[in-house]
């Protein structure tokens, strides 16, 4: 293996773009399933940045943080989808704008 010589900057730009896309989706979508997907994209983007940094200095640490992010994502999705089911049962909708009982 070896021989990839793209500037680190480009990888990070990719991560930043993915992160921004995720953020955009999070703010844009009203359906909670899409919001969860956007979160996945953002987590993935962050993981990409870590792996790139780890590759840059040829250290395993980047991949270890990726593993942690992976488990966080798994736990988050498990709980988040459980919540989705509850919301669907309770409000009969997935529109997060109508589920606004926290309004002050």
């Amino acid at each position: 293996m070896g021989g990839l010589t793209v500037p680190l900057e480009h990888v990070l730009v990719l991560a930043a773009l993915l992160f921004s896309f995720g953020l955009l989706g999070l703010m844009l979508r009203r359906n909670i399933i899409f919001m969860l997907m956007s979160l996945e994209v953002m987590l993935n983007a962050a993981a990409l940045a870590f792996v790139a940094a780890g590759a840059n200095w040829a250290q395993p640490d980047g991949q270890i943080v990726f593993l942690i992010i992976l488990s966080v994502a798994a736990a988050e999705v498990a709980v988040g989808l459980g919540l989705v089911l509850q919301i669907q049962r309770r409000f009969k909708t997935l529109d997060m704008d109508t589920a606004n009982r926290l309004r002050g």
């Binding site: 999070l26 703010m27 009203r30 909670i32 919001m35 704008d97 589920a99 606004n100 309004r103 002050g104």
Partner: peptide, 18 residues
């Protein structure tokens, strides 16, 4: 004013966090 910020809308919270 502050309670008006608490719209209960997840998107709004996300936007403010951003």
């Amino acid at each position: 004013g502050l309670s008006a910020l608490q719209t209960g809308e997840l998107r709004w919270y996300a936007t403010t966090m951003v």
